[in-house]
Design a protein around this nucleic acid. Structure first.
Length: 206
DNA sequence: TGCCAGGCCCTCTTTAGGGCCTT
């Protein structure tokens, strides 16, 4: 995979926690990282075809009246698919966003080919001393600027993208690895899966 | 009525259980 690989950081607000249980996306935010910098963005509300409950309205600040005027998934997801292109995807707690993206793509006959990396899994390895690994906590811990309201899709995607860049910087500064940040993070994630902490120690000792 | 997600990761583990994180 190319070092210059475009990355898209994505975040969904949804009607609930279970994509497979029928919950739907109500907002998507996506931020492209190109050449190590934040570039184009994509954001829209999505009409889920149903009422969202009061918890979701309160949690996200997205009301039913806002969603009533929003485009539906059949309009939104082909556009998102085009925006994402062949970029590697990143999200905070990626399994959640991946399940929603794949479920919504399936409804509009789109498919996802590229890998989906998780900023939370990397942060747990890179910042083990953080109070916790919620996005809001990590934004503060890594001195990432707050770009908007938490629990809105574009703001969360932007701050996840900035956290991702901060983690890249930490890796470069901490391990002297000037190049191949994407490969490094992919390796770091696979290492996390394998619980192979020795890999980082070996890299640091080189 | 009662139930209500799923994947990762750690540990008092692996023939399991529970916390974290996302909305």
């Amino acid at each position: 995979m190319s070092v210059k690989q475009r990355i898209v950081v994505i975040d969904f607000e949804t009607t609930g926690l279970s994509a497979r249980g029928g919950d739907r996306a109500i907002e998507v935010g996506a931020v492209a990282i190109e050449d190590g910098r934040i570039g184009a963005t994509f954001q829209t509300l999505i009409n889920p075809g149903r009422q969202v409950d009061s918890f979701i309205e309160s949690y996200t600040g997205i009301s039913n009246s806002m969603l009533a005027e929003a485009p539906n998934g059949r309009e939104v997801f082909p556009e998102l698919h085009e925006f994402v292109g062949d970029a590697v995807l990143v999200a905070h707690n990626a399994s959640f966003d991946q399940n929603f993206l794949d479920a919504e793509y399936q409804r509009v006959d789109c498919t996802r080919q590229q890998p989906f990396l998780c900023s939370m899994r990397v942060a747990r390895r890179l910042y083990p001393d953080a109070p916790n690994h919620k996005l809001g906590t990590l934004v503060d811990y890594a001195n990432v600027p707050i770009t908007g309201t938490f629990h809105r899709a574009l703001a969360d995607a932007e701050m996840t993208a900035l956290l991702w860049l901060a983690m890249l910087a930490t890796l470069r500064d901490g391990f002297g690895l000037e190049d191949a940040p994407l490969e490094l993070l992919q390796k770091l994630q696979s290492v996390a899966i394998a619980r192979a902490d020795d890999w980082l120690a070996a890299k640091a000792a080189e």
